[in-house]
Design a protein around this nucleic acid. Structure first.
Lengths: 234, 234
DNA sequence: AAGCCACTTATGTCTATATATATAGCCATT
DNA sequence: AATGGCTATATATATAGACATAAGTGGCTT
């Protein structure tokens, strides 16, 4: 048990508070003393205590409301953070060589499901790409991508034969909103062939839609090779 | 473009900085002016600018180093945050009725794979549970759980027949470390039956291991019913 | 009893200032 | 050319004090 002493940093205070929560000195649902009181106890200032409590609240341990005070959350809704790396980085950081191949490139009117999903006017032309990402010689990810060219200059002239749309978009088009889903899909014949799997095999899949200030930019379906796990620690 | 004016809050400053990044006024890899300079430009104080930049760095837009300054990250490694809700909450928040059933409860020596995975001494007794979580009448999640009773008082006496181990553990046992993985698995006969699926169907699966100060606490495999998506926005 | 308002209080945020600490860049020495 | 130390500087954090804002509380009114 950390004992309060003078000159405690906001980190120290965080730790003490966490300890007290763990040791049920401040049990779930209970109210913490006010910032002012804590500042006095720790011979610190309200600013410092504030930072400690604010961060703990962000991390999901506490709930804070003006006037109501700071409360210990009973079920710490801890949040899992997943970095969303570029495939390229994910592969190279793993020590493998990254290799990319463009499978198909077409421009076609947005199919109905895509219009609905991304809120694109019916029949608007979109750029459709299919690509493969390899880790060394092993297939790593099969990518099906739709790009709305309207608000993206040059995208129709971009050359995606030697580097992926991901790289290009990251460089050229920032996004303001993103929806990311993870799900399990069943490999169809085509996906199975690209990923070196059997048709019907379960495939870990990510769907990623981005917008730039309300304008839909791109939708990507990313099919990961069998055995893929998305892991995080905290 | 937000124009700098007096009395800008740290939120305003964040927005201006973000705008400038988006508009390539501060392109990727470039160095921002120092906090002192920005404070002057925004007729604010270093403290306020500091908070704005610190948060933007946390959000993955900037990289900050003492003396080196603040730099714009070229590939904004934005981080996806997933709340890890209790199944119960996930179901009730969806408007459905939560129902729980215990399928099996045994105490047995830890199998080898579990010992290895969680770093438990070979042959140590562990508690093994299988449970079902329903949303209304529809199967929602099939849970296979292993609990290391060593450091958890009362767990062997706990009654898991009417409420799940998740609820119990959350109440009784805090954790300090967590490993969370998402993957796609193939439903075996048993999983398929519980989830009302066909054997061989792809199943979105989460694996969750927790520790308390280095001691392994519990491993859960959570199999979600067909059609499940884990979604986040940012 | 129900509704409304004023008061109080805890957090939220900003200002102003000071000290701490890491380190890039330079210079001198080996 | 490599090494080691110095210094200037940018961020990191702490202090003290002020005002802003949300929201319980209690009292007053109807």
């Amino acid at each position: 048990m950390a004992a309060p002493r003078a000159n405690m940093s906001y980190r120290d205070i965080k730790q003490v508070v966490l300890d007290r929560i763990h040791n049920k000195i401040w049990p779930p649902d209970s109210l913490l003393p006010s910032e002012t009181d804590l500042a006095e106890e720790f011979s610190s200032t309200r600013t410092t205590v504030n930072r400690a409590l604010r961060e703990l609240a962000e991390e999901g341990y506490l709930e804070r409301k003006r006037k109501a005070g700071t409360r210990v959350l009973n079920a710490p809704v801890r949040k899992a953070q997943f970095a969303i790396p570029l495939v390229r980085d994910e592969i190279t950081e793993n020590g493998s060589e990254y290799r990319y191949a463009l499978v198909e490139r077409t421009v076609l009117p947005a199919p109905a499901w895509l219009s609905a999903r991304m809120d694109i006017p019916q029949g608007r032309d979109v750029l459709h790409l299919r690509c493969m990402h390899y880790a060394g010689n092993a297939p790593f990810q099969y990518e099906i991508r739709w790009i709305v060219p309207d608000s993206i200059p040059d995208v129709l002239e971009a050359d995606f034969s030697s580097s992926g749309p991901n790289d290009w978009l990251v460089q050229k088009v920032p996004f303001t909103n993103l929806e990311l889903s993870f799900l399990a899909t069943k490999a169809d014949q085509s996906v199975a062939e690209f990923l070196d799997a059997q048709a019907g095999d379960p495939v870990f899949t990510a769907e990623r839609i981005t917008w730039l200030r309300g304008q839909p930019v791109t939708l990507a379906k990313l099919f990961f090779a069998p055995g893929y796990r998305m892991t995080t620690h905290l």
